[in-house]
Design a protein around this nucleic acid. Structure first.
Lengths: 147, 147
DNA sequence: GCTTGACCTCAAGTTAAGTTGAGCTTGTAG
DNA sequence: CTACAAGCTCAACTTAACTTGAGGTCAAGC
């Protein structure tokens, strides 16, 4: 049977909640893929819905598109990903996520005690112990910090 | 007794671990403040060390400079902040941090189960329930998403 | 008293993640 | 068969958070 109709960009945008321009952008970045109709229009398989969903969720917690791209690259392009494929992705991020969660907790719980007590001025404060890979790739340029 | 010597930008940069240019930038943004010597050079009180430390920590967990600025504005400019001042800041961020932590956990714990099970394609997935205020102010332009 | 390394200012460049717009093509509903 | 919405491409603009560079000033050592 036919694969329940493929999606146009517009439809994908609707259902995923991201702008068409963003989808184009993701595709240019290699995060999602489409094939073209005879008239050069994009058609997306249903699996891209999931991909886009992941992209959004991951982004919301501060993972960069670059990192998301690397993770998504582990998913098979051709077939619909199996549970094992997702597992791979999941475990790949787990450590980074754990670290980030730990830092957030420290910030949340530590603000009063730790900052209030003055230890933050020095570098031995637990809050300042980064080693956080996920968070490090922030927004702007940061050539100088390059450890 | 004299206040144990104030810091030059260079010294502050050293001790805080952020570049001089970044310190200038923060000052322009109103996140830190300095007074000038007769020769127009910046001198920082020791309390800015803490401020900068907070800025860094908060940034690492994805809080924007704008939000950090708002929070820091609650700290007194003149005197060294008391424990109560820090408490105010801490509780102001608590909710947002809690939400963010929850989302990270969901992503961490949910990747395998939730994504693997296919529910993410639809909008009823728990992962897709955002309402996250801190994360929403992401990086780029996002006029269209403006809810 | 001069040199050399910190500072200063201001403008322009950079990266990420998109958005906006112009100009042109497709496809579908009347 | 003709509108007109939806697509397409490509270039330029946007925001955040800085960095880099040019051109000039300060200050501490020799």
């Amino acid at each position: 049977m036919a694969p329940i109709t493929e999606l146009t960009v517009g439809q994908l945008a609707m259902r995923s909640g991201v702008a068409v321009s963003a989808l184009h952008f993701y595709e240019a970045r290699g995060l999602i893929r489409s094939h073209r109709t005879s008239g050069n229009q994009r058609r997306y398989g249903r699996d891209v819905l999931r991909r886009v969903a992941i992209i959004k969720v991951a982004q919301e917690v501060g993972i960069s598109l670059a990192e998301i791209g690397i993770a998504l690259a582990s998913l098979p392009e051709g077939r619909t990903p199996t549970r094992d494929d997702w597992n791979l992705l999941s475990t790949a991020w787990r450590d980074g996520l754990d670290r980030k969660i730990a830092q957030l907790k420290k910030l949340r719980d530590g603000l009063t005690d730790c900052i209030g007590c003055g230890c933050m001025s020095i570098d031995k404060c637990p809050l300042r112990n980064k080693g956080d890979r996920l968070a490090r790739e922030g927004t702007g340029a940061r050539r100088l910090v390059a450890t």
